[in-house]
Design a protein around this nucleic acid. Sequence first.
DNA 1: TCCTTATGTACAA
DNA 2: TGTACCTAAGGAC
Length: 268
Amino acid sequence: MPEGHTIHRLASDYADRFSGTAPRVTSPQGKFSDAAALLDGAELTRTEAHGKHLFLGFRDTDWVHIHLGLFGKVAFGDAPAPPTDTVRLRLANDTSYVDLRGPTTCALITDAEKVAVHDRLGPDPLRADADPRAAYRRVSRSRTTIAALLMDQKVIAGVGNVYRAEVLFRHGIDPYRAGRDITPAEWDAVWADLVELMREGVRNNRIDTVRPEHTPEAMGRPPRVDDHGGEVYVYRRATLPCRLCGGEIRTAGLAARNLFWCPACQQG
DNA sequence: TCCTTATGTACAA
DNA sequence: TGTACCTAAGGAC
């Protein structure tokens, strides 16, 4: 679930249900109890996302900083909220509740601490203030592989293992190429594609990367909806035939994550 | 019922 | 590079 598009969607979903209300704030699981007590009954004034980081703004001064990590999940529902014991943070008003489970980070922070988080993140394709040239400056000076650079949140914020694999496939880029060998034109195309793919990801709340002419329907095959909810070219499709060339999709470990790619289609 | 795995990150060595 | 951390689902028994 949690790549950048998920977090931006959450920012808007939290706002839709709670903005302008003063929800009851609790931490049934306990780890956020002290902060929850301080926020209980305060107005949720704004929400924001940068990369995979979510910020909930209360009474214009306090922020809850949330990072889902690998396991974190958020579930919205209509009131009344059911009993629970694994929820780190629950907001509940007269109409809705929202439960946060298993996050890497859930902390009450100040405005200055929030600024520090922004400062250590690269540009986010989903944010209006993003400058793709800032990301390219780092990419173009690095001997690290483009596959690793796309996952480095200091370089570009919000891309995770699915978008990384998919955008490299869509541009025929060998994941093991060094960042310094990526041309400005290639970077511009990758960035523009990420903006488009991730915006659609926010809209649909899932990752779809397969072009209309390559969908199973267009190719006369049964659809395969993957675990992340959408249709993709290579992510978690190891040993399956490539949708374009029919060759076998490969997988390998890279920086402690699973990389997926089609060696035939991605030689550039 | 146990084991593996997961769209993430931080820290130690 | 390895390991620790948080949770839940799916598959092997």
